[in-house]
Design a binder for these strands. Structure first.
Lengths: 332, 332
DNA sequence: GTGAAAGCGCTAACAC
DNA sequence: GTGTTAGCGCTTTCAC
């Protein structure tokens, strides 16, 4: 409501003196400062962020865009990014894009309109429109996925988790436990993550000279009901199976349900490993062995790299993180 | 990067004309408009939001503050609020306060600093400091909980869900199914929600002239392990039980686990009802009968009421929503 | 119909 | 050390 000028008028000091007193920059007599603080308090003064931003070209604000607030995969990543950004006196604004390109472009336009100092984009759609917009805007952006078409002068980097390696961990673990017939439940061929994971699976098979059988690679659409139905259909075919790798913890729930209905015990009759290591992995019965995709440090690294870019370090530097396997009851 | 003045310089028109052309307000020759649009595009012009806000005192931005992004209870509420706000051309900025008063005050200071047009506060701490700040700021705020100390000229309203009624639904359902000994797993006495729910439970008992037995009201801390341990301890006491009301879906998971370990079948040996009707209720085995706390419409109503306040309708109007029971396998 | 100019609130440069 | 001033980019009022 009130501005620096109002305080100046009330106290008789110049606006500059008032500004100096309030910002603690430059010298100001203690007595003067006291008077000004008191006036500010009686006038209920608050600095106006827009004026400050207009002047400084700095917002101290970061936009964190995720495709879906309900997906537990993102939680710890959000926390990791928030921690780093808040420690550096940035505000974190979380926005859900629902995988709609229109909303993604809207977020990018906020970056262009100086609404924020930078943007972190997670599971972003790498279509020409989006990438073109990022390049045109030319302001700090970090992606949370691997992007292969990157150019040297692009205004963005990416931080990503190695899905190939993660899948090798999962498959090796089951083979080490003695599994002979391992089913891979994953996403569709179009999905980059699924392709990478399938590659990891095939590598693990190859290293042990095990045969590649397409019957053991099934699309489960990354959710409980998709996995439930896919696994039911798989069991109907009567193919032997003593190990399952689920696309994520939710998909593992579908497998568990199907097993229960078919009288199969986990891990007695078959061992189960899933991905993401979310809270779901902790509360199921049995608890789930799950590949931790280091979401928290993913968030931290995204934030750190973005801050570097904002500080002017614009040389491309992409970061790869290595997942780890967390063993629990489902694969004992 | 470029401003209206840059376009004016390039095209030779006055800045006013350029502004008119770009905003589509007031008349502008089609030919002129075309030239200006082209210049804007070659200069890669973007309006500056801060300048606009500074001038208009309007941000078209709403802050949605929740205590914890990981809690599935809030998901559908966030979606409901976002839908309404986006339909009305507002941007939704989600912020997590982690139940820390310092962060809550920080969010309120953003409201004061004209960073946004209004704030929705969910599960807000009603301490004097916070309520005092809201009153001092005097700008639009909506609370997502019932607040009893409200004054007539307060700058906020609340929208809340009737927990007493919700608990009556849950208890009546179990009694209707023939349960005789129903255990209530809830939160601590200090928690307003827990107190209201306990009241609903006692009312349901009273209506059927059933005795109040404190042994059947147990604190489970609203999470899986808390409920697991509390229910284990309860079973050890050997008290008869054929129905359980869990504080939320996560707590129900703890009960399910304990039942499995004790060889109790759900719903065969005991029926189970929980609260919140989140995705967790859908993916467990058995699926959970759960009281839907109408999170989506809660979000919608919060947003609608806030928009009313922003439009100048500042008369206090609080809203109460009635939950519904969703029946699933756990209480069949 | 078009243009000049003031001002939103803040900050930094430069006088004094 | 303190004060004056210009300007960030936009919008609105008021002349012409």
């Amino acid at each position: 409501m009130s501005s620096i000028y109002d305080i100046a008028k009330l106290t008789g000091f110049s606006s500059t003196t008032v500004a100096r007193a309030l910002s603690n920059k430059g010298y100001c007599k203690p007595k003067t400062k006291e008077i000004i603080y008191e006036a500010a308090s009686t006038l209920n003064y608050t600095p106006n962020l827009s004026a400050k931003t207009l002047r400084n070209n700095r917002t101290q604000r970061i936009l964190l865009c995720i495709p879906d607030i309900c997906n537990p995969f993102y939680f710890r990543m959000i926390q990791g990014a928030s921690k780093v950004l808040e420690e550096n006196d940035y505000y974190v604004m979380l926005c859900s894009t629902e995988k709609e390109i229109a909303k993604e472009l809207k977020m990018l336009s906020l970056l262009q309109q100086k609404y924020c100092d930078g943007v972190i984009l997670i599971s972003f759609n790498f279509c020409e429109e989006n990438i073109g917009a990022i390049r045109r805007i030319g302001r700090p952006v970090i992606l949370g996925n691997r992007y292969l078409g990157q150019r040297e002068d692009d205004p963005f980097d990416y931080v990503y988790v190695d899905h190939i390696y993660g899948m090798e961990l999962a498959a090796d673990h089951l083979f080490d436990k003695g599994c002979k017939n391992v089913l891979l439940l994953t996403g569709s061929r179009e999905d980059q993550t699924s392709r990478e994971r399938t590659e990891g699976f095939l590598r693990a098979l190859g290293r042990r000279s095990l045969p590649e059988d397409p019957a053991y690679i099934v699309d489960c659409r990354y959710n409980t009901s998709g996995a439930y139905e896919a696994f039911n259909r798989f069991l109907e075919r009567g193919i032997p199976v003593d190990g399952v790798i689920a696309a994520n913890d939710l998909a593992a729930y579908g497998v568990l349900r199907s097993c229960r209905e078919h009288g199969l015990s986990v891990p007695g009759d078959l061992r189960l490993v899933s991905f993401d290591n979310t809270d779901y992995a902790l509360v199921s019965s049995p608890t789930l062995t799950s590949v931790d995709m280091c979401q928290y440090s993913l968030g931290e690294q995204l934030a750190l790299r973005l801050l570097e870019r904002i500080e002017g370090n614009t040389k491309i530097r992409n970061i790869t993180l290595k997942p780890t396997l967390i063993e629990r009851e489902s694969s004992e």
